[in-house]
């Protein structure tokens, strides 16, 4: 019999703490596979955020930091500058990256730190129990927007990929989703390219991944996938937002 699926050695063999149906696990797998395939495990350092993925350091079978809330890009900066040979990635939620850590991420991107950022956008604060995130959709219920997100009061959801892509500094910035097999394949490809740019020493890279949070959306996993497709995807268009001008061709060829 042909083996068509096996566990990624890059993920520690243990059950995660994520809720049933949560796509944090899918993203973990994509990142882990990529590190494995690129053969960079031994020089990779990951940085876990504060958020539902706070325990990511338990799961990735590489050297890991645990950063304080929002500061992962700053920690990554320190690590990468001190040891440029390392492949440094941060894994951050939307509260962590787009709210409390907005300053850190923008400045890390603008300095062109040669790090890779995996940004999980699930339109909510998962870990603290469903409060508004900067990426919460207009009208979306959260425990701190009991009447739905009112854009007149708190503004519109932040499109981080576009925001970072607007910086002059060269970077690879893309957005994918992880709610369907087709989109997962695309997400994998973007993550691979993001890491490849870092391996080549080219530029800062960030992949935003639209992800589901059945627990705090109050939907089943199936309904959550549909909600993501119907509500989030039109507002957060998928695709590559920015590529560095140089070295692009080589990286694409792999």
């Amino acid at each position: 019999m042909k083996k068509i699926f096996s566990a990624t050695p890059l993920l520690v063999d243990r059950p995660t703490h994520y809720c049933p149906g949560c796509t944090h696990g899918v993203i973990h797998r994509l990142v882990a596979e990529t590190i494995d395939e690129l053969g960079i495990r031994e020089r990779t350092v990951g940085i876990a955020p504060v958020g539902c993925s706070v325990l990511a350091y338990e799961y990735f079978n590489v050297d890991m930091f645990e950063a304080s809330h929002g500061r992962a890009p700053a920690v990554a900066t320190g690590a990468k500058r001190a040891r440029p040979e390392l492949i440094v990635f941060s894994y951050q939620g939307d509260g962590d990256l787009a709210s409390i850590g907005m300053g850190e991420i923008i400045h890390a991107a603008n300095r062109g730190e040669k790090i890779t950022v995996i940004f999980v956008n699930n339109a909510i604060y998962g870990m603290t129990g469903g409060q508004m995130a900067p990426t919460t959709m207009p009208g979306q219920y959260s425990t701190t927007t009991p009447g739905g997100r009112n854009v007149k009061e708190v503004g519109y959801p932040v499109r981080m990929a576009e925001l970072i892509a607007s910086l002059r500094t060269p970077a690879f910035v893309a957005r994918a989703a992880v709610h369907s097999p087709k989109e997962i394949l695309r997400a994998k490809e973007y993550i691979r390219r993001a890491f490849s740019y870092q391996v080549a020493g080219t530029c800062f890279s960030l992949v935003e991944l639209l992800s589901i949070c059945p627990t705090n959306w109050g939907l089943s996993a199936r309904e959550s996938e549909k909600w993501l497709e119907r509500e989030m995807m039109p507002y957060y268009p998928l695709g590559i937002k920015k590529e560095p001008e140089t070295a692009e061709a080589e990286v694409k060829r792999g």
Binding site: T128, G129, Q131, T143, T145, P146
Partner: peptide
Amino acid sequence: YPITPQSEVPEYLAR
């Protein structure tokens, strides 16, 4: 800003 174990204060006041 939300943080356990006091998030019910902002949640209550948001309402």
